[in-house]
């Protein structure tokens, strides 16, 4: 592994000032994305600021019912936290569908949101990749693009966003708190991940030196049922080909509230807002779920090897909505 300097931080203020807005410095939390990519020579920070000891480990329920999660809470702790399993089962299911026990024990909430794509050309320093090396081209366009995205792609990048946790956050709604050299600010989770467009290297609405300190989940939808369905090449420890996170609340036989987000198919965690809108006020029946799936995938565009993802995602959506409905209590 290439060499770098390391500064351990004990407080948020110390971390932000040690980072200093320097583009060559990286925060390191669990390290499961960063160390992997430094070994591959894909990420090349000259300095790392260790944030793993920051006191950002709390999960607390706010007075308005929202859930405030520290950026250093591990994926394991968050998935098993009693407030999460009780009020945000979609989040728990999505996290546990990702990676392995060991990786979830290391991975943090903030790091998961910031994880990079698994596109094999991005991970290969010898390949052309606009995300890694802006302007170099994209070897995935006419390469082995079976794992790549079908929604939100551009002629410059078709990489899929790999996170399962982020699919749940997109469906549930959340706010990120960032602290940087110029102070603190908040941003809606749905505005944080960028579409690739002509700058696939700019993945997040984050300024140099900004640290995610908290993720605050919107208050839970009462009586809703939730289901995260992940379809992949093997039963566990594999990234999604397509996944669907669904939440449904039913009242007097019609859908009062619907939430739907997709993984493995979008260039960012994919919030299917139009499909949600189409579901509200309809009876929770398969025919309506199929219509919603059609809306969610209307703009899908495939390359040579990933056209199978369109029917796969359609089926994932329908099944996840059916399962979420079964888990909901009609009030």
């Amino acid at each position: 592994m290439r060499s770098f300097a390391f500064t351990p931080a004990e407080s948020v203020g110390q971390a932000v000032s040690a980072q200093g807005g320097d583009g060559d410095a990286a925060y390191i939390a669990g390290g499961t994305t960063l160390i992997d990519l430094v070994k591959l020579d894909v990420m090349r920070p000259a300095r790392m600021v260790g944030v793993n000891r920051l006191p950002l480990n709390d999960v607390e329920r706010l007075d308005d019912g929202r859930l405030r999660v520290g950026a250093l809470v591990t994926n394991t702790e968050l998935a098993h936290h009693p407030l999460v399993t009780a009020h945000f089962p979609l989040l728990s299911q999505a996290i546990l569908a990702g990676a392995s026990t060991q990786l979830r024990n290391m991975a943090t909430t903030g790091g998961n949101i910031m994880q990079r794509t698994r596109c094999p050309y991005f991970r290969d320093a010898a390949a052309a990749c606009n995300k890694r090396e802006p302007g170099s081209g994209c070897d995935a366009l006419d390469g082995i693009n079976r794992m790549h995205a079908i929604l939100g792609t551009s002629e410059h990048c078709i990489a899929a966003h790999p996170s399962d946790m982020c699919v749940a956050l997109a469906a549930l709604g959340a706010t990120l708190t960032l602290v940087g050299p110029h102070g603190a600010r908040e941003i809606a989770f749905g505005d944080f991940h960028r579409l690739p467009e002509d700058r696939p290297d700019r993945e997040h609405e984050i300024e140099p030196g900004e640290l995610i300190t908290h993720v605050t989940l919107d208050s839970p939808v009462e009586g809703a049922g939730a289901h995260y369905l992940k379809l992949r090449d093997r039963a566990s420890y594999e990234f999604a080909l397509a996944s669907a996170g669904a939440m449904i609340a039913v009242e007097k036989g019609v859908i009062r509230e619907a939430r739907l987000a997709l993984g493995g198919v979008g260039t960012r965690p994919w919030h299917a807002q139009e499909a949600e809108q189409a579901l509200r006020g309809q009876p929770p029946e398969t025919v309506n779920f199929e219509k919603a799936a059609g809306i969610a995938l209307r703009d899908a565009s495939a390359r040579q090897h990933n056209a199978f993802k369109i029917p796969l995602a359609r089926q994932a959506i329908v099944r996840a909505l059916e399962k979420a409905t079964q888990a909901a209590t009609d009030s």
Partner: peptide
């Protein structure tokens, strides 16, 4: 895989200096 403060972790992705 080793256990760090009891938890199973991948030692290949963990910087030693983070185990202070």
């Amino acid at each position: 895989t080793v256990r760090v403060d009891g938890q199973a972790m991948n030692a290949c992705l963990r910087l030693a200096v983070m185990c202070e």
